[in-house]
Design a protein around this nucleic acid. Structure first.
Lengths: 166, 166
DNA sequence: ATTACTGCAAAGCATTTGCAAATGC
DNA sequence: GCATTTGCAAATGCTTTGCAGTAAT
């Protein structure tokens, strides 16, 4: 069972090996530029990231590395993931802001949000066309939508004006 | 300073009073239907919700009610907020799933997500038109986008098939 | 009189952090 | 050799929960 691997697994392994082989040098470049160190732990985390399916959560990954020969501590996993995000190798799906925000719904139809990175302000906007496209996408996937959430992160007009070009 | 209120404040107060006056009976209906009880604490939370600006977070609201004559405990605030969400008076902006999910970015362009309420599966989709509309909306608001996140919640084709009409 | 709701404080959970020891440069 | 990283465990911050007392039906 363990010695015999089917073709699919072999291909997957090959794929992973290739991604790591390509990404690791890029990560090294990133670290060097940042004057950060190229460490064993960082390579292990990067490898583990690429060994996982498309979507994973930090804690699962940390759990996988909690024991065994490639042991990396939880703290380091989180720290490295943050680095990898900065380097552009991973993307966080639910963004970092920990606490949930609420808004009134009473006489307040659905709309989308922009959140300013600098001041945290919420800007509301609406676009029926976006909703139409979402609905179409759901039809294409035979997905039955219940609701959706669209948030654009960036800089609001006030903050981008305040911070003049360096 | 305290006795003299300007016009804007007066109008705002009026607005709030009206919303509460309209929403409270609806919440009562909701509670009755659910065979839940109509309590003082629930009215206080509802009032507080409508007294706040469009966006607020649970904890701030709880803090506001932690002391004073309209004292409601943190636990009750969270419980009532959940009820109000169920009743459709408020909407949560960052959804409930606590832990952040990551995904590879390496050779994996930006795309949107559908998440199945039932099985938790992530479905990826892409729609350049949606992105165009987002960009247009940002231009309209003079908002400088850095990135965005679009998640559609609902039921995937597998799960909606599995659960035949009752 | 029942039974649900509330307050409180304690538990939970994902994530972050402080610090001594280890490692890369 | 010196500075950065790591591991560990403790701290954090938001949210949930258990339970005994309180209030609504």
């Amino acid at each position: 069972m363990k010695t015999i691997k089917n073709l699919k697994d072999k291909l997957l392994e090959e794929e992973i090996r290739k991604s790591v082989e390509e990404a690791w040098p890029l990560f090294i470049d990133f670290l060097k530029e940042k004057k950060a160190r190229v460490t064993q732990a960082r390579k292990i985390v990067l490898t583990q990231v690429f060994s996982r399916h498309d979507h994973f959560c930090a804690d699962d990954l940390a759990a996988a590395l909690a024991t065994g020969p490639n042991h990396v501590s939880r703290g380091t996993v989180y720290r490295t993931l943050a680095l990898m995000e900065e380097a552009g190798f991973v993307r966080v799906i639910r963004d970092t802001d920990v606490h949930a925000h609420y808004e009134h719904t009473y006489k307040h139809p659905h709309h989308e949000h922009m959140v300013c990175d600098a001041c945290g302000d919420f800007i509301e906007f609406e676009d029926p066309k976006i909703i139409q496209h979402i609905e179409q996408a759901c039809r294409d996937e035979a997905f039955i939508p219940r609701t959706h959430r669209l948030v654009v992160f960036g800089k609001c007009s006030k903050c981008s004006k305040a911070q003049k070009p360096a």
